[in-house]
């Protein structure tokens, strides 16, 4: 009916063609092809990967404050505006930085670096499944997100970074590829070391101070379960009970910590026959060194702890 109305009204007056049209492909967002790419990331590993691969051809920004866990930090709208202007936005995926799921970000410049391995995400058990009203039953259970602790996944993420940078700046494709190859070798070296160290300890029971080592444990076939302890806080009675409950079925001899643990807690664990070793997931910018040096330190510390 509307079409008929349109036909009739057009016909009554005749149609004059010739109004200045716009260029079909024109967009108002243009950038200097030789300027460094503006890259925004949601965690430090991605910052490191982007800086290694992009080198002088990128300017990487990681806006999360150093004292906050970037996985749970949520930017203000003004900070989101910064993300909206970026040439490339690197997300971790696997439910990391949930704010990105609620933010308005340009889809064409958004890269979920674990998209290629999304079928391998580890679901966290124990989520509440519920239904209400006319809606279907659903669950809010989460996904383990410290994906880069599996160096094989870290390589996949780095490759996604390389691909995104090459797409944004095709003229630097070769440089990005060469830099990625070097990073890949470094990550493979860490993977090789960890494999060598952990292979004899596949059946050893380990406990993580926080549930962040799922991908690490899966990669090296480790028998690891987690509690919810903070390195800088002494556990309360409930947390000790939680550990004792766990130890009944999982006789762990080593606790892996996200940071250097409280000496009193280390001593108390020692009395229970449990050693402590820090293994920094490096989600935020380290106070010293870089991603690679932190991972190498983790390897050494773990090797020492397991050999003892």
């Amino acid at each position: 009916m509307r079409a008929l109305a349109l036909v009739t009204l057009f016909a009554m007056g005749g149609v004059v063609v010739g109004c200045g049209g716009e260029d079909p492909g024109a967009t108002s967002r243009t950038r200097d092809p030789n300027a460094p790419l503006e890259v925004l990331v949601v965690n430090y590993p991605l910052q490191y990967f982007a800086e290694r691969i992009g080198a002088e051809h990128v300017r990487v920004a990681f806006p999360a404050p150093p004292d906050r866990d970037p996985a749970f930090w949520s930017p203000e709208p003004e900070a989101i505006a910064g993300f909206q202007q970026a040439d490339v936005i690197l997300l971790n995926g696997a439910g990391y930085a949930k704010w990105a799921e609620r933010a308005t970000l340009p889809r064409s410049r958004l890269v979920v670096t674990t998209a290629a391995v999304k079928d391998d995400y580890i679901q966290i058990e124990g989520g509440i499944t519920h239904s209400h009203g006319p809606g279907a039953e659903h669950s809010h259970e989460g996904t383990a997100f410290t994906t880069w602790l599996d160096p094989k996944i870290a390589i996949v993420q780095a490759d996604a970074v390389r691909s995104a940078l090459a797409r944004a700046q095709p003229s630097k494709r070769a440089a990005f590829a060469a830099n990625f190859d070097m990073l890949k070798q470094d990550l493979l070296a860490i993977d090789g070391d960890l494999e060598r160290i952990t292979t004899p300890h596949g059946k050893t029971c380990l406990v993580g101070s926080h549930p962040v080592y799922q991908y690490f444990a899966r990669r090296y076939g480790l028998n690891l379960k987690s509690v919810h302890w903070e390195p800088d806080k002494a556990p309360d009675d409930t947390q000790w009970k939680e550990l004792e409950e766990l130890l009944r079925t999982h006789a762990a001899k080593l606790m892996i910590w996200e940071g250097t643990p409280n000496p009193a807690t280390v001593e108390a664990l020692k009395k229970r026959g449990i050693g402590s070793v820090p293994f920094d997931p490096c989600g935020n910018v380290p106070s010293e060194g870089d991603y690679l040096s932190v991972m190498r330190f983790n390897v050494t510390a773990l090797e020492d702890a397991l050999s003892n």
């Binding site: 149609v15 004059v16 049209g21």
Partner: peptide, 14 residues
């Protein structure tokens, strides 16, 4: 109609 069709066509052309 000229004006309207011009506007409509410009939108389609863009």
């Amino acid at each position: 109609v000229d004006q309207t069709t011009s506007e409509l066509e410009a939108r389609a052309r863009s």
